[in-house]
Design a protein around this nucleic acid. Structure first.
Lengths: 71, 71
DNA sequence: ACTTAATGTTATATATTTTTAACATTGAGT
DNA sequence: ACTCAATGTTAAAAATATATAACATTAAGT
């Protein structure tokens, strides 16, 4: 299933944003909670569009949410 | 075909990097020249992994290469 | 005017992401 | 101990990105 070559802080950011659930975040981003769960766990590399939308919800630059790790 | 909701400076950066062709960039990133062409033209939203790799080739932060536009 | 490399573009195939739906587990509150 | 929301997880389908191959166009060099 190809683990993503970067880490992310979504789980932390959700709680800092005030108990935001995966479902809440999914709604704001426009994807399902399962998609959020999979991205959060690094199960695959989301589209740049979804990554941008997630960062936008937290008001953070994309690279503060997703951090490159490999290569 | 869903135009991407962000612009990018890949074409400019390729020339600033010294006449780097789409094929050259594709080789460095690990995708085909057609994929570079499509991304460059905003035809779709690449995976976050490919976006990171492209930015990495130019030694730029991702958000200096791809800039959010919509929503 | 010719060549040739780079790019544009298209069609079809393959790979990957995302959705949908279902069920299991965990944890907080009562 | 119960309940219920949140999360984990999985399988199959749908949507989207990427590869491959082929041919057309553009532009620079000679």
């Amino acid at each position: 299933m190809a683990q993503a070559p970067f880490t992310n802080d979504i789980k932390t950011l959700r709680f800092l944003a005030g108990e935001m659930t995966q479902g809440d975040l999914g709604d704001k981003v426009g994807v399902t909670r399962q998609t959020i769960a999979a991205i959060e766990q690094g199960k695959y590399s989301p589209s740049l569009e979804v990554a941008f939308r997630i960062a936008h919800v937290f008001g953070k630059p994309l690279e503060e949410v997703f951090r490159w790790q490999a290569d």
